[in-house]
Design a protein around this nucleic acid. Structure first.
Lengths: 208, 208
DNA sequence: ATACAGTGAACGATCGTTCGTTCAAGTATA
DNA sequence: TATACTTGAACGAACGATCGTTCACTGTAT
């Protein structure tokens, strides 16, 4: 799906791919600094060291630049999927994941880009699809962990592990957003998040 | 703070206030439909049945229109603060609040406006302040309920009730956003949210 | 008569996109 | 290997539309 055709390893196409990446990087920087709608195509082109017209040789429209960026977000999730794939006891995996994902979102740029994409997704179905698709990668992996934990008796029996997975993600992401807006560092919030999640999913008789 | 000076009850000022309200209403509609940055000042003026120039007699800039709207959000919270002020057992109050707040956010317009304001708050400190100020109304009330519940033994002892309050709000708001983006109605999500929160804050020995 | 709500043309800037052109790399022909 | 031909990346001026804001003006209630 993301594998773009064949890639003839010519000197030309190599440079071409490099340009493309440069443009995308520049776009991300611009969107982070000024927001998607406040960023002009010229801003992106200038920052990428590329002419305005050339940018349109690489991307059919500004919208498509954002679509590509939203799609790229998928790659960022790999480390977390890896954690969730571990076979250690579910509570341990869960806690490792929560910590790692929260630390990832402690970087403002990751939160800002998320908000920027989310707010564009409201009115652009193709962006919403990508957003939900990426999110599904996390939820389905997390759901597996929760189900396994419940089966092993390591976690509270959950009426709908998939719903619970969603809620856990929302907790982390919401906390990250609040951390950024309020200026309270994620490090100060993380403990509370972990406790809250533990309390919610660990079996009732677990020592606190 | 929001109480604007004195209000001489003349026929003129009456009509004036009405115009202002009309403009704000129109702005809200526009922001909901097209987003803040995709909305032109002309769109607002036209929709409000007001001339472009006149809009600037009422508001010094487009930005200030959003500021006023963000401030107005405060009033929407009154019903929920009222619920949280009740003296019934904390778990009962909490559940009533969660349900009511979730139902409120089941209406897409409430979620969209929230996202729109949040994403503008990233780069506009005065909007961020208003946002956090409004949110503090909810968190502090909710914190009281949680503290009381913990003191009465109705709720699990919480190391930081204020943090927990934040997390509960984030759960509800995050769920609402997901509901809107994914198309899954809030009604299908609410049960899971209530269960999750209950598990997280009720004493460990409580029957499920 | 005075103050000011109300008006819409006009301003300069910027928007996303298109255009004709240039020129270097890739391919075919010799 | 040297040559002509083809392709499309790269460029920046230009397009029409729209942006937020200002301003000189009109109408009207006090």
């Amino acid at each position: 799906m993301s594998g773009q055709e064949d890639a003839p390893e010519s000197k030309r196409n190599k440079a071409l791919a490099k340009r493309r990446r440069k443009i995308l990087e520049a776009a991300v920087m611009c969107f982070l600094e000024n927001g998607y709608h406040q960023t002009g195509v010229r801003d992106i082109a200038t920052r990428a060291g590329v002419s305005l017209g050339n940018l349109y040789n690489h991307f059919p429209s500004k919208h498509d630049v954002l679509v590509e960026i939203a799609g790229l977000e998928r790659d960022e999730l790999a480390p977390f999927l890896k954690i969730l794939a571990k076979t250690s006891p579910a509570p341990k995996v869960l806690d490792k994941f929560v910590t790692a994902y929260a630390k990832h979102l402690a970087a403002p740029e990751n939160v800002i880009l998320s908000i920027e994409i989310t707010s564009e997704a409201i009115r652009k179905p193709d962006i919403a699809d990508l957003f939900l698709e990426n999110r599904d990668l996390l939820t389905s992996s997390l759901t597996s962990v929760l189900s396994r934990g419940a089966a092993d008796g390591d976690l509270r029996p959950l009426s709908d592990p998939s719903d619970t997975a969603q809620l856990i993600l929302e907790l982390i992401e919401g906390s990250a957003a609040r951390s950024m807006l309020s200026g309270v560092p994620m490090r100060k919030i993380l403990g509370g998040v972990r406790d809250f999640i533990s309390a919610a999913v660990l079996p009732p008789d677990t020592a606190v």
